[in-house]
Design a protein around this nucleic acid. Structure first.
Length: 202
DNA sequence: CCAGACGTTGTT
DNA sequence: GTCTGG
DNA sequence: CCAGACGTTGTT
DNA sequence: GTCTGG
């Protein structure tokens, strides 16, 4: 699973690595949590932009935003059919940029879990597959954009630590993942566990 | 038919 | 123990 | 995901 | 909005 990550990059670096149309607003945190508003990457009106969204997807049909706290992750295996995610999977895919993500594992005999940090072996940013949605608060008309991180099976590096991992996209697939012209069944094939050599951890 | 849920993870 | 907030 | 709280009353 | 459970 993925419940915390690190995003500590300059706007210029974000723009370069994801070929954004403009520099995004600065955002730095080595401890991004659910309900925070990190930037997510989308293709909007022909531009590739990184703009803030709330972590924890609130489905457009939800009556209250509390629904979002339960949807910080979405299983790759079920996004095509679950009501909360299926429309987003068809036409609202995004990339969550991250310097690293964290996983925790219990250590036998110890009370506190150990935290592991996973980063790209290349030193570049990770592009994690996500879905987003737009929700309107009935009482005020306020529009809230939110997102979830897609998880998949662990690769061999992750397996000893955890039974799920975020779906890390290959840079060569960024365009296809973000394009609304890509059919969901094609997009779904991009959500496989990362190759072992892509990540390092400590 | 209406009412209520709509999710993942880890842990038991 | 379990829920809420970040 | 973890950290921190863990309440009631009356009013909208 | 749409599905599930009663």
């Amino acid at each position: 699973m993925c419940g915390r990550f690190d995003l500590s990059e300059t706007s210029q670096r974000l723009r370069a690595q994801f070929r954004l149309s403009v520099d995004p607003a600065p955002f730095i945190s080595d401890d991004v949590c659910p309900t925070n508003w990190p930037p997510i990457i989308r293709d909007l009106d022909g531009q590739r932009l990184a703009t803030p969204a709330r972590w924890g997807l609130i489905p457009w049909f939800a009556k209250d935003e509390k629904v979002g706290v339960r949807a910080i992750n979405a299983r790759a295996e079920t996004i095509a059919t679950l009501p909360t995610f299926r429309n987003a999977f068809k036409c609202r895919r995004c990339i969550v940029p991250a310097t690293a993500f964290y996983e925790w594992a219990a250590i036998p005999g110890q009370k506190q879990k150990r935290k592991y940090r996973f980063a790209a072996a290349s030193g570049e940013l990770l592009g994690i597959a996500g879905l987003w949605d737009r929700w309107t608060r009935q009482s005020t008309g306020e529009v809230v954009e939110s997102f979830t991180i897609i998880t998949t099976e662990p690769n061999q590096l992750m397996a000893p630590i955890h039974d799920r991992m975020p779906a890390v996209l290959k840079p060569v697939n960024y365009d296809v993942w973000l394009s609304t012209d890509t059919p969901p069944e094609v997009a779904g094939r991009l959500l496989c566990p990362a190759d072992e050599e892509v990540l390092t951890f400590y």
